[in-house]
Design a protein around this nucleic acid. Structure first.
Lengths: 120, 120
DNA sequence: GTAATCCCTGAAGTGTACTCCATGTCAACA
DNA sequence: TGTTGACATGGAGTACACTTCAGGGATTAC
């Protein structure tokens, strides 16, 4: 699969795909002899993971560290677990912030709509 | 209340407080004759709102627009409602991204922990 | 064989949200 | 009255995550 096809498949620019690879959140993609990327199934799985995690807001450097640990082999399993748990905690915290903000937003919207109704 | 006190109360730097005011996500704070900020109850409510919304990830420009509409008076109620609803939608989207990422994270953590257990 | 098309890289540029810094004012205390 | 310390402003600097650009190679279409 070419970089353009991958880009279309996942709705992400080719520049970003190259950037993710350079940043290390996608391991070096399979290439042909002239250096052109030819994404294999495994490459695509990394792409998918990177996109999911980035959308949720996980930072590039944490993801890069995770990828590095993966490439380093089995003995990094404990560190990987710890890293993932840390990130999970961050996501939980972030979700809570969102829930709190949502509560305020809902309260305000409701209040405004009532004022609007009573002014009619 | 001085800017330093507000900073300590909300755990946010004085620079950020000034920045928020300049950026328009907090209306001009009450000042004494020599121009020094003296936060009143109403100012504090704006500070609180700004901090909550920023923590959830609402962008500065959307918040600034909201503040501007507020200062413009009652007739902007419909626009305010629309703005808040748009932001609520964004938060919902973001929460969903987080939930999806969390599912993946949990799956991976579980898998790693099982491998680790079986390797013992 | 040459023009068009797609891909490559390294480096510079952009947007967002702060954060830091230089310089200056003002009130209060020694 | 001089010095200290909190606060003010405008502007430069920083971090992060892309995004754009300049300059080149390789393949395909004619």
């Amino acid at each position: 699969m070419t970089i353009t096809e991958v880009s279309e498949k996942y709705g992400i620019s080719v520049d970003t795909l190259r950037y993710y690879e350079k940043a290390g959140i996608i391991p070096r993609v399979t290439r042909n002899k002239s250096g052109i990327r030819n994404y294999q199934e495994e490459d695509l799985q990394w792409v998918q993971l990177a996109i999911w995690m980035r959308r949720a807001g996980l930072p590039i450097d944490a993801l890069a560290k995770y990828v590095k640990l993966n490439l380093a082999g089995e003995e990094t399993l404990p560190q990987r677990i710890e890293l993932l748990k840390t990130q999970r905690l961050e996501l939980e915290r972030q979700r809570q912030e969102i829930d709190e903000a949502m509560t305020i937003l809902n309260r305000k919207i409701k209040k405004y709509e009532e004022v609007l109704k009573n002014n009619t």
